[in-house]
Structures are given as structure tokens and as C-alpha cells.
Amino acid sequence: MNRRSFVKALSIGTAGLMLPSFPLYAKTYLSVEQAQNLIWGDLVMEPVTVELTKEQMRSIAAASDVRVRYNTIKAWKSAEGHWYILDQVIGKHENIDLAVGIDNQGEVKGIEVLTYRETYGDEIMNPKWRAQFHGRDNSEILRLDKQIKNISGATLSCRHVTDGINRLTHTWSQVLSQL
């Protein structure tokens, strides 16, 4: 879910009354700047937007065994060649925003989750069920529940983050390290 549709999820009006709606839990943690500061301190970094070619996307996916969903990489780079990258992975069902530092040797220097979003409920997890709302943004059937802060449920695996980091280190070695 991009930022715009996420904002839309916050402000569902009449659509929310007509459709069944399901709780979306969204929690924000450090800001982009705070996470950068935590990973890289005061290091001066310039913003860089990297566009991956189809060929590069295929090659990174083959090397990391992880699908490359986006061709645009939002990142910052220092004169020494250290990188700070904003990335998204799918959590259990919704996107999770990540900030990752990779140094000029390709080593991961820090990982922070910036926004965590999740939905609960059996049907909403089912792609077939979601398909009945085809043409609508998924966010329209979600409502944000801001009341509840602390959730204790069966443990969610962070496997997709691990996969995402793997994809990024391959992105570094194939593309970013050459820039």
C-alpha cells in the first residue's frame, strides 16, 4: 500500500459504511531521519533515486530467490559509498516500511521497521475474498483502529524482512556498489 492509499485508509467515509470493514493496525516507529541518524550518525548523505532495469530486477530476483516488486529504489548515499535505503516488504498481509543501512563493503549496518501495518480476520487474508472488491483499493475495506496499542497474539514470523534484506544485499552487489 502506498502512502496515498494509506492516508485514504485513514479517512474512509461513506464507503466504510457500505462495505464490511476490517481492522488495520498501523504503528509508526522512528522517522526516516531518526533511523538514518541511528544507523549513520551525522554522516552526510545525498538522496539518490535508482531505477532498476527489467534485466537487473530479474537478475537480483534470481540471485536472492526473492521477487523484486518495485523498480525504483529510494536511497541516500555518502561520499564513502555507504547507503541508506527505504524499502517495503509484505508482512503477513500488508506492507511494512523498512530502513536499511548497507556499508561500502556490502555489510548490513542496521535495520529499522518504520511503519508496521497488519490486518486480522480470516476472510481478509484470503485473496479470493479480496478479489470481490476488484477495482477498489484494498485499503477501502480496512479501517484503522487507533485505540489499541498492544497486541499479544501468536508470533508473526519476520521471514519476509529476512528475504527483503537478502534482496537488498544482492541489489547492492549487483547495482548500488557500481554507482
Binding site: 498492544n150 499479544s152 501468536a154 519476520c158
Partner: peptide, 25 residues
């Protein structure tokens, strides 16, 4: 407050709400 995937520890826990998600409607 530390929450490791549902394992939670609070310092001031009194009157704190807790949500336990269930997977079925």
C-alpha cells in the same frame, strides 16, 4: 514496553489495555 511478537513486558502495566487477535470471525 517490549513486545517480541506477542511476548510482552511492561513497566507500568496497571490498567493497560491488551488486544488478543483471533483469526476467525
Amino acid at each position: 514496553l517490549i513486545n517480541a511478537g506477542g511476548d510482552l513486558r511492561f513497566s507500568q502495566w496497571q490498567q493497560q489495555p491488551l488486544l488478543i487477535p483471533t483469526p476467525f470471525f
